[in-house]
Amino acid sequence: MGIKVLFFGSVTDITIVSELSREDCADTDTLEKELLKQFPALANKKYFLALNQQVIHENCPLKQGDIVALMPPFSGG
């Protein structure tokens, strides 16, 4: 089942794909580190993390089936 990662808005300029999955990951900090390794440009990108459709403000443990979203700010109108 793994962990699903969703990318939104201009984050997909960097990731190109809008989602990917990870076999296994202990927590959101570790996941972010792995994503940064895969997509170094994320380091300069502003975004917030949501775990299972709820915004998170600190490191959270992950379990199989969790969905993590990376949401950047939007400004167009």
């Binding site: 969703l6 939104f8 949501a50 459709q53 709820q54 915004v55 979203a69 949401m71």
Partner: peptide, 20 residues
């Protein structure tokens, strides 16, 4: 936060909470 994707025609909801 409601996020609409035109191409997939889908909405993704994210519940927001205050950041201390």
């Amino acid at each position: 936060l409601l996020n609409y994707h035109f191409l997939s025609g889908s909405w993704y909801e994210i519940a927001l909470t205050p950041n201390p």
